[in-house]
Design a protein around this nucleic acid. Structure first.
Length: 585
RNA sequence: GGACCGGUAGUUCAACUGGUUAGAGCACUGCCCUGUCACGGCAGAAGUUGCGGGUUCGAGCCCCGUCCGGUCCGCCA
């Protein structure tokens, strides 16, 4: 006898009278005394079972059922009476009139209920410890199913475009740049360590040298860094992509439809702007104060330093720069919110203060009296302010003003719900600076990826101020999330040596750390570029989840532990001895 | 490494300005109920208020320390 002839999600009125067998979990039960209803659940759905002492051979077993028992039910598909139809349920037109029931597995009382529609979330550590139970819940289950569907869609997209799926090593070598490595001790080589890959960056470039031309991989990446709400602790997956013989423009054209299709067809949401805008890094930093702005709402930072000079308000007049954002609908913010939330936030971002004016029919606010009517009407003309708006001003260094207003912009949008949850505003951020100044160490560092090609090549490196050199480096962003950075790679040994030299590395350093890469580039390296969007972040974006752990089947907690399996764990002395490791203390 | 918020029954939350025996929903146990679908009704069990110390006539509440969790900063080429 089979365990089931159908799943719990597929039976309907067309099956009336059929003899069926279903297996699944007892999701809900309603014992009316002499008649028992059970909602039987599997991953496909819910089906109502009716146990009736006149029909069910072993009714006593039905009476003993508890939540989350696994049972097998044999019975007939019956049409429900008109009044008993449940329109909320896919199988709500029918029910199974049970002839017999068998308990396949019992269940202890649960640490939390699976049916959670009306409850708040339990402590996350508890949910992680019983993740196998939380995965039975509708929302998490659907997220994991969506994850599989999205990955399948991506693979199909890539395969159709001649990309080759290639696995790169998990046990690899420690890289001196970037994040902290997870290390794996070697038994055969005392005192030596493998490192888990932070990303298959170097391998994918070597694959381009090998001639594979279009590579992709759903690649596991491991980094020993502290987590965030949008950053998975320890490990995460990237859609790792690299292509040869494509200009950045061609690369964007090749990949952009994937994100449009994922948005529209897989997630059922709307794309804000097609084709995706390409915004230079300097522009977005000035205009939005961050390098991954949420573009769903049209609130921009405007520089009004020229206007400030014409006023009599000293703080504005004497400022290096004055910048402003106009938030439509912001006139409703209270003094409490302005003083204790917005101002504090601006100060946390290094601004000395935050000035504000409300505008309805006229300008209002504590600083309004400092301005002549002509100055205010000039401001209105410049900014075309709609009634019921609030203006936030920061007078400071230009960069500080934009950064502080960028944070204020995000908070204001959250409070006013300016961002449409069904809209995804994709954009490419381009022209990242090749280098940036490290204030702490007082030296020039690579801005992002040291393997990026500088714009202008060797000439730019030799002749321009390093801080003015741009890289062929781009990010893809959406709704305030950075999905990926990417770049045209530097494949010219001469340019590499020079690029590293500017960041303070000697020829010897480069030879030691990246000698194998340079060596490879000396045997025929095609021009190549790529990127690596985070799978988990992509899911957060498409599902509208705020926490990255709700799109990962078995995530780690903030201390990088997995409470269910108990990792990381102590190991046997014997294992340590094999690995030539002594634990200090 | 740092900042902020939190920790009360299995679980989600209450408990007034420090005041008698720490309450409620769901879950759990027992009984009743033949058309429920968040079934209903009656009864019951369930607590070292994270832990340690202090202030007080009296602490879930105030203070100090500590542990744990979440969010953020640092960090994440």
């Amino acid at each position: 006898m089979p365990y089931r002839t159908h799943t719990c999600g597929e039976l309907g009125s067309r099956h009336e009278g059929a003899s069926v067998i279903l297996s699944g979990w007892v999701h809900k039960q309603r014992n009316l005394g002499g008649l028992i209803f059970v909602d039987l659940r599997d991953r496909y759905g819910l089906t109502q079972i009716v146990f009736n002492p006149d029909v069910t051979d072993n009714y006593a077993v039905a009476e003993s059922l508890k939540y989350e028992y696994v049972i097998k039910v044999e019975g007939l598909v019956g049409l429900r009476n008109e009044s008993a139809i449940n329109t909320e349920l896919a199988t709500g037109e029918i029910e199974i009139i049970a002839k017999s029931v068998e308990i396949l597995s019992t269940a202890k009382p649960l640490p939390f209920e699976i049916f959670d529609a009306h409850k708040e979330e339990e402590d996350e550590d508890l949910r992680l410890k019983y993740r196998f139970l939380e995965l039975r819940r509708e929302r998490l289950k659907n997220n994991i199913l969506f994850r599989a569907k999205m990955i399948q869609y991506i693979r199909q997209y890539m395969e159709e475009r001649n990309f080759v799926d290639i696995s790169t090593p998990i046990l690899t070598v420690s890289s001196p740049e970037g994040a902290r490595d997870f290390l794996v001790p070697s038994r055969i080589h005392p005192g030596k360590f493998y490192a888990l890959p932070q990303a298959p960056q170097q391998y994918k470039q070597l694959l381009m040298v090998a001639g594979f031309d279009r590579y992709y991989q759903i690649a596991p990446c491991m980094r020993d860094e502290d987590p965030r709400a949008d950053r998975s602790p320890g490990e995460f997956y990237q859609l790792d992509v690299e292509t040869s013989f494509l200009e950045p423009d061609e690369f964007f054209h090749l990949m952009e439809p994937l994100f449009i299709e994922l948005t529209e067809q897989v997630a059922g949401k709307k794309v804000m702007t097609k084709p995706f805008p390409r915004l230079p890094y300097r522009y977005v930093m000035d205009t939005y104060g961050v390098d991954r702005p949420d573009l769903r709402y049209d609130v921009k930072i405007t520089d009004i330093t020229d206007w400030a000079k014409t006023t009599d308000f000293k703080i504005f007049q004497e400022a290096t720069a004055l910048r402003v954002i106009v938030v439509p609908g912001g006139a409703e913010f209270t003094r409490q919110e302005i003083d204790h939330e917005f101002t504090l936030l601006a100060q946390k971002n290094q601004a000395k203060g935050l000035a504000w004016l409300k505008y309805s029919n006229a300008f209002e606010g504590t600083i309004a009296k400092f301005f002549k009517p002509e100055a205010l009407s000039a401001l209105q003309e410049k900014l075309s302010i709609e009634p019921n708006s609030i203006l936030f001003f920061v007078a400071d260094e230009p960069f500080v003003a934009s950064k502080a207003l960028g944070a204020v912009r995000i908070l204001a949008a959250e409070k006013l719900h300016l961002a449409d949850p069904n809209l995804i505003a994709w954009a490419w951020i381009v022209d990242f600076p090749m280098y940036e100044f490290n204030d702490v160490e007082q030296k020039i560092d690579f801005g992002h990826n040291p393997f990026s090609m500088p714009q202008g090549g060797l000439v730019a490196l030799n002749e321009k101020n390093p801080l003015d050199i741009l890289a062929y480096q781009y990010d893809i962003i959406a709704n305030g999330l950075e999905l990926s950075s990417g770049a045209v790679r530097n494949k010219d040994p001469k340019i590499m040596y020079r690029a590293f030299e500017i960041a303070g590395y000697t020829r010897d350093d480069v030879q030691k750390k990246f000698g194998h890469m340079i060596d490879a580039f000396e045997y025929g390296a095609p021009p190549h570029c790529g990127f690596a969007p985070g799978i988990d972040r992509l899911l957060m974006l498409l599902l509208g989840e705020k926490n990255i752990r709700s799109v990962i089947p078995f995530p780690k907690n903030q201390r990088a532990e997995e409470p269910m399996m108990g990792s990381p764990s102590v190991v046997d002395a014997r294992q340590l001895k094999d690995l030539h490791i002594d634990i200090l203390e």
